[in-house]
Amino acid sequence: MNRYLPLVLIALGILAFATLMLVIAPGVQIAQHAVPKGLNPYSEQESRGREQYVSLGCVYCHSQQPRSPDQAPDVERGWGRPSVAGDYVFDQPHQLGTMRTGPDLLNVGVRLPSESWHLTHLYQPRAIFGWSIMPAYPYLFEEKAEAGPEDTVVVLPKGFGPESGVVVARQAALDLTAYLLALDRTYPVPEDALRDDGYADRESGS
């Protein structure tokens, strides 16, 4: 090992090239696009809910990237249109996810717009889906003998709640739900959006 300099230079060169092609060029390409019409920044409560989502690790079981119809039947499942880069401008860190143990959540606020549904589901998924393997998050809730005027009571079937009293949502659960309800990318794709159209149909000759 006697030619350090060329080695180091070549290594740095490769690194610089990769940074240019994989980080800087896409960055420039994306920065030219405006925020899509119809996408709003997260409110303060929704941002707090988003932090919950990140820290509870929902991303390990849920993706946030519906696929185009030629890749997977996501639109038919009601998961929404294939996402485009612009859909994620306010998402830092993004929660794209790689695992689909549960359904994709990028548009869950549209197909399940019910706050009380989400509270029941977070308190005990098996109250709704007997077969669900999603963890329950009881520590986002507290049991009370009687609900106060400000409290949001969780709707529970018999057998899932406490013997007596009610289950009410803590702020964390309300925040997380507000974030889930804000997940809505059903506005039309902007004209100039970066999108993946896949390849032409082989049959249609091209």
């Binding site: 499942r77 009601g78 929404g80 019910s114 009380s116 549904w117 709707v155």
Partner: peptide
């Protein structure tokens, strides 16, 4: 809604218009 039922409008929309697979 009531004690053990979520409100219909919370899923089906305030006008029963639905969305996606609801």
């Amino acid at each position: 809604g009531k004690g053990d039922v979520w409100s219909c409008a919370s899923c089906h929309g305030g006008l029963g218009q639905g969305a996606e697979n609801t």
